[in-house]
Amino acid sequence: MSATVPDLAVPIGAVTLKNPIIPASGTFAASYGRVFDLGRLGGLVPKTLMPGYRPGHPPNRLTEAGGGLLNAVGIPSDGEEAFLRDTLPAYKGWGTPLIVSVSADTAAGFAELVALLEDEGVDAVELNLSCPNLEEGGKSFALDTKMTAEAVAACRSSKLPLWAKLSPNAEDIAAIAAAAVDAGADALIVANTLTGMAMRRDGRPALANVTGGLSGAPVKPVNLRCTYQVAQKLPGTPIIGCGGISTLQDVLDYMAAGASAVAVGSATFTRPLTMVNLVDEIASHCTSRGIAARDLTLRA
């Protein structure tokens, strides 16, 4: 490794990210390509694709709360055809891996979306398991080992690497993670937003959906704990840490807890250049220490 050009690449199973910084699904758009070179990121992650047209939740969908952001967007989607025709091409050609996030309300629905992506030039698929499972009374896949395993297993015939995105709301996230890996997940994203609620001054809920997902700095201690627990349980499984990452120290904390890379979400809304600044800071950090980015990951 050169002393001045650090090796920032990090392997996530069969996929090699250009560097450890990728967007968190749901917080990114190809339109950020107007602001910075998307090819500078470790990988790209469009908003989660769901089957068919979904309008998402009514407004208000997002509010500031508790020092973070609380959202209930409801995964609006224009459906598979529009995704393949309009969305996917905007993410191609940037010279960095493309990870497509999918979700569905049945295990078979997950499998259909993954199958659809099989020959679309996608590098990996994120299974966003936070969606309610309509076959199990609306309970989130990510809160149950059996449902998580069923969703992952339904997709496992795919050649594509499968990254399971877990929920910090799970009672025992390490057990959920183990179920996902046993069912065939190649990597884990730890973790999604934490369910919360905010009120307006008039006593009504701030979000139309009443509850939403809390993100940003307030969730970092929770998701960092989740990352550590999952890393301890599954020492051979790559982890992408997610939750409240906006500084180099946040990145280092997650990698010290066992993450191989991190996903940045809310911080991009506050300062759109956060991710590229983090890439630069990691490069400087590694250069000054004569190490590669992958060396930042600490595992027991």
């Binding site: 758009a29 950020y32 407004p59 208000n60 952001l69 609006p76 809304f269 759109p272």
Partner: peptide
């Protein structure tokens, strides 16, 4: 004019209903 968290289409939150029935 509505509340606009990101301004660039990433958060999908600055929505208004149009006559086509969609946000």
């Amino acid at each position: 004019q509505v509340a606009m968290p990101c301004g660039i289409g990433a958060c999908k939150s600055c929505i208004k209903t149009f006559k086509d029935g969609r946000y």
